[in-house]
Design a binder for these strands. Structure first.
Lengths: 190, 190
DNA sequence: CATTGATTTCAGTAATTTCTGAAATTTGTG
DNA sequence: CACAAATTTCAGAAATTACTGAAATCAATG
């Protein structure tokens, strides 16, 4: 590995974290490298930078593409493929959320639905189903929220983040003002 | 493995998903078993239910305790430890969020901070730092939101979820009403 | 359409992670 | 405080996952 020290630290860290994030070391390293590099890199650049085999680079890039985490760039007059990452971090966040939901949540939700269709054969199964139903309800609430929020533009998303728990206070404020309006002149609101 | 079919399917699914969630198969299975069982189980119950070694159960329970995902119950007159999961799914969600943040986000944030303290030794490093700074800013916004929201009571949290993207509209509504109020009688609001 | 260069595939190997059984330790009880 | 039961530790085995190099495939160019 032959990189500026700062970049190397970043790349190695992403490699180590990879396993916790559900990707492997190489995939993490390549992502970090592409993210922090000032220009697109081709496969051989990555081989040189990370000292790994060409085939490993090929497979790992494929994996990153399955995650929608890399972009393919073509450089005129060069037949090799060059790669970068999308450069809007908010977009990266959206992609990550989408992909992790797909891999980590959706399969469980579908198993829960399936198991809740069955009729329980014993008291123990009846209890289990009740617990699964609780879990299903929660997951469905979360995914409903996510489906709603994921369409927001970056600016609105940032607003929502900045608001945080103040949202609940805001509701109170609105309710108070609205009910004040009603008392005053019996007007309707949404 | 000797379990009612429904419970068995659930347990096996959690086992398979384990690796995607950053825990291993056994840990996933034990968690699922404890979650869906109607009463606390002791280590030997788990050995019997899942057909795994006693030592594996011991290590996996330790892992689950490190995640704060299991509770220890004592049954009077029985010196063995019995285990359950917290039964409020919202509380489980909070725990999961906290632990995953601790394992998956915090280490990266601290590396980013450290790397951003260094002075860049080249143009390439300067560019890398700019990218790391973007990432840091995003993560800090997200964790700030999380730190704010994590203290909410379940009911408030549910309200926030149900609101979803409507929050942004709510802000508009509030602004409109408030400015209306100002025009009418020059009142102040927070 | 042959040649050359780039990329992918895949079988075998290496590395890592998980699991087990035996031994050691801890904990509660008479 | 000795004993018995329960639990944990840990070295090695088993299973899984990641990586490599050689061969195959694909794609552009003259």
């Amino acid at each position: 590995m032959n990189l500026p020290p700062l970049l190397q630290s970043f790349v190695l860290h992403f490699g180590e974290m990879g396993s916790r994030w559900g990707i492997n070391r190489t995939v993490g390293q390549i992502y970090a490298l592409l993210y922090a590099s000032s220009k697109p890199l081709c496969a051989d650049d990555i081989v040189d930078a990370l000292s790994i085999s060409r085939s490993n680079v090929s497979m790992s890039l494929r994996e990153l593409q399955a995650w929608n985490l890399v972009l393919l760039k073509h450089i005129p007059g060069d037949r090799r493929d060059y790669f970068t990452t999308p450069d809007d971090v908010w977009q990266i966040l959206r992609t990550l959320a989408e992909e992790r939901k797909k891999r980590e949540v959706d399969p469980t939700l579908s198993v829960l639905r399936e198991l809740l269709m069955q009729s329980p054969g014993s008291e123990e199964e009846r209890h289990a189903q009740a617990k699964l139903a609780e879990m299903q309800t929660l997951i469905e609430q979360l995914t409903k929220w996510y489906d709603d929020v994921k369409h927001l533009e970056t600016e609105q998303l940032a607003t929502l983040l900045n608001l945080g728990s103040k949202v609940t206070k805001l509701i109170d404020t609105k309710d108070r003002i609205v009910s004040l309006g009603r008392k005053r002149k019996g007007s309707k609101t949404s």
